[in-house]
């Protein structure tokens, strides 16, 4: 057990280190902006005094390394700085001392919304995909398997917005069963919220299910070809028991891996889908901020996405270590 603990701690440390380096990469990338933030905020026609004042305000006159650690320590405390968009707005109306909306304030509710969307998607996609994947593996080369192969390949190949608009066309426009706009607000009832989240969740489900199903199928086929499955069949064990008792315990590691990898994939998919459905999540905020070059928000969103991605990959790693009998029961 000790060695497993050691490996897991190593992976955790590696994950933290990666996240740390990623934060440096993000910070450096943003610092490659021409000129500096102050000019970016105020635009070309700003007076030098205004620029200087903003610089001081944002601490831009300090050394980049100092600023990096300020930013990092802030991020660790949950303080991600202030949004430029609001600062810009404030200076525009001439109210410099006005209210600033902090990035954290902006992100928090949207983060919750995105988690809700991802949660709903996972709840539909994971059981569905794993079941279909196992079925396709059991009845491989049958008509069912071939149909599943072609449709998942098509679904993977299609851009998310294509699937999204096809779903809108059929489920919102032609047969108005679900709303095509996901205008979610605070204090909404769970049922209504679920209904408004349904279309984006279904779109994501289509993409993720296809990936997950193909990978599950491959993992299970690989497993069913192993000699110990043949051995179990040659021992005259009932087919159902062969699957449950012999295949499943060994399939757990690859399936967990597949699920975690695809949840990580969701992170990218969520951006486009949120834009299509105007879903007030972190992905939409990210794209909006990219367009108006709201650097602190872009930086923060990037960090959150990367953190989630690393975390999920790490989870996959650790769970597959835990489900490996060779590691759990060392010699």
């Amino acid at each position: 057990m000790n060695s497993v603990l050691k490996i897991i701690l190593q992976r955790l440390a590696l994950g933290l280190l990666t996240l740390f380096i990623v934060s440096i990469v993000i910070f450096t990338a943003v610092n490659m902006l021409p000129g500096d933030f102050a000019e970016a905020i105020l635009g070309q026609g700003a007076t030098p005094e205004a620029v200087a004042s903003i610089r001081r305000d944002l601490g831009l006159d300090q050394h980049p390394i100092v600023r990096y650690f300020d930013w990092l320590s802030g991020a660790l405390r949950g303080d991600l700085g202030n949004s430029f968009a609001q600062a810009n707005f404030a200076s525009f109306v001439g109210d410099d001392s006005g209210v600033r909306v902090s990035v954290a304030q902006q992100i928090a509710p949207r983060f919750a919304n995105t988690m809700f969307l991802a949660g709903v998607t996972a709840a539909i996609a994971v059981p569905f995909a794993v079941m279909l994947g196992i079925l396709a593996a059991l009845y491989r080369n049958s008509v069912f398997d071939k149909v599943a192969n072609i449709s998942t390949l098509t679904s993977i190949s299609s851009p998310e917005f294509f699937l999204a608009y096809v779903l809108i066309l059929f489920l919102a426009v032609l047969n108005p069963v679900l709303p095509s706009l996901s205008n979610i607000y605070e204090g909404m009832g769970f049922g209504e919220r679920l209904q408004k989240t349904m279309l984006p969740a279904l779109t994501l489900t289509l993409v993720v299910t296809a990936h997950m199903m193909r990978m599950t199928r491959a993992a299970i086929i690989n497993l069913l070809a192993s000699p110990y499955i043949e051995m179990a069949r040659l021992k005259g064990i009932k087919p159902m028991r062969v699957i449950i008792k012999h295949a499943l315990p060994n399939a757990l590691a690859p399936i967990i891996n597949v699920v975690a990898l695809n949840l990580a994939y969701l992170i990218t998919g969520v951006v486009v889908v949120e834009v299509v459905f105007v879903y007030p999540g972190i992905g939409q905020l990210f794209v909006d901020s990219v367009k108006i070059r709201d650097i602190p928000v872009v930086q923060a969103c990037c960090l959150i996405f990367a953190a989630a991605y690393i975390l999920l990959n790490l989870t996959a790693d650790i769970l597959s270590i835990l489900s490996n009998p060779r590691l759990r029961h060392p010699k």
């Binding site: 000699p227 110990y228 051995m231 009998p325 060779r326």
Partner: peptide, 12 residues
């Protein structure tokens, strides 16, 4: 079987 190492289920 030829390979006992592969023919025993590693999980049990």
């Amino acid at each position: 079987a030829q390979s006992a190492a592969a023919s025993f289920n590693p999980a049990h």
